[in-house]
Design a protein around this nucleic acid. Structure first.
Lengths: 112, 112
DNA sequence: GCCAATACTTTACTTTAGTATACTATATGC
DNA sequence: GCATATAGTATACTAAAGTAAAGTATTGGC
């Protein structure tokens, strides 16, 4: 617990590919990005559209995606609170990756 | 330990996209596929080329990739043993996904 | 005064991923 | 007879990912 020299930077600075994989991996990450491709969305709406996810995971993923500058968060001081999530430019630039995965999924994983 | 009715099928049968993500995620998976894109390789050679991986992880990943029909395994009864790994057709079909990730990584993650 | 709605937080787990290191079998070369 | 090489196993962990379910604050509607 004492010395925090073990910064655990995930040392993926080595290779941009590894860095990208760190970002892309995760059960929910790409699904969220995928849903957000269709536009700005509020938290509850995201929770409904990303089927199967639970609150804790969505919060966690959104925080990570925000930290990685993939997702933008905008809060309004209404009651009940309104928070809007949308993709940044970096986020939308993931589109080709998304479509590549999707077409692979459809052509290879679908029995027909 | 007793009843194994909890088959934990990872119920990704829902959506081919989720199924693809299950496959693609994992710290080492795509790196291994990437290395194997350059051709057939033996276990030790793979261990050397996939920098940073350890034996246990490589074994585990290769087993999973084999089960998912992404990788082919061919063993020869020599001493010391020879085992050759290569991509299946399904494996090589991942190329577009790989290149999409790579070009995203280079254009977005690289500072310049 | 209670319910609903939003955007979370908190607590308490279980499961999977990943790491580190030592060990095994066997023939060949020295 | 000892080291070397290959393709793993085995053991023993730690850390991260993911799940489940309840709680919080606020206010407008009934």
């Amino acid at each position: 617990m004492a010395l925090q020299s073990k910064k655990k930077t995930k040392q993926s600075g080595e290779c941009p590919f590894q860095e990208a994989m760190d970002l892309i991996a995760g059960k929910w990450t790409m699904s969220i990005v995928n849903v957000l491709m269709s536009g700005t969305m509020r938290f509850k709406e995201l929770e409904r559209q990303v089927t199967g996810i639970n609150t804790r995971m969505l919060v966690k993923e959104l925080k990570q995606l925000e930290a990685k500058k993939i997702v933008k968060r905008k809060a309004y001081a209404t009651v009940p609170p309104t928070v809007e999530y949308s993709l940044t430019e970096k986020g939308t630039s993931l589109k080709p990756v998304l479509t590549a995965i999707q077409s692979w999924a459809i052509s290879v994983l679908q029995p027909r």
